[in-house]
Amino acid sequence: MIGAGGSPFMYLEFGDIVIYFSPYTLSLFLLALVFTVLVIASRPERQLDIAFGADAYTTKDIGLPEMRFRRFMAIACGLASMGAMVTGDVFDFCLFTSLVGICNVGIVAAVRSRHVQNAAFQYGLVALAGTVPLFGGAAIVAATTGTLSLIELSSTALPAVPAVVKGFLVLGVMGEGMAPFYAAKAEMFRAPGAPYVIMCSLSSLLIFLRVIEVVLQV
């Protein structure tokens, strides 16, 4: 299906890699941009913990080194998801998606708590496993059609891509984009969240949304 997200109105060509902006990819790109700016601009929350059995509560402060690292990872994650939103190349999309997965692990893993790091480790395993179908899908696309460009793939002149590719791509993105579900794990509540954990769920949702368009065009 051509132009599932509206017809592209701007092309940026880097050699044979074409970045294109359609209303859909542009709005996703802008959202990633807005949240990246927010991550840069906002200070972390100071999470309130209520002490059990006592009339007291504590706030958690994030140390500067930890904050710096998480912020760096969140910004990298924002940049990677911006790239995944606008790229017009299946392989680049896979690359950016796996970068999103790595950054998500990084955001979570910087917290100095055994429970949080366990969750990060498990997520890392899932993300690692997710890259196999992801790049496998891209490889099959290249092998059957000889091109990786989404614009050329959406034209009907090329040989049809096997349906299993769509499944592979979606499966891979599901692996990379599992982060929000880890953020919902009880272990993760021990980590102060905003604004870095938001970046986890935002980037995962964005790559989910983008893979829909990719799958419709392949």
């Binding site: 906002s42 929000p180 905003a194 954990v197």
Partner: peptide
């Protein structure tokens, strides 16, 4: 994401 952001940004459990 917006709901998530509303919830996380305040620091309240």
């Amino acid at each position: 994401i917006v709901e998530h952001g509303f919830g996380l940004s305040s620091g309240s459990p």
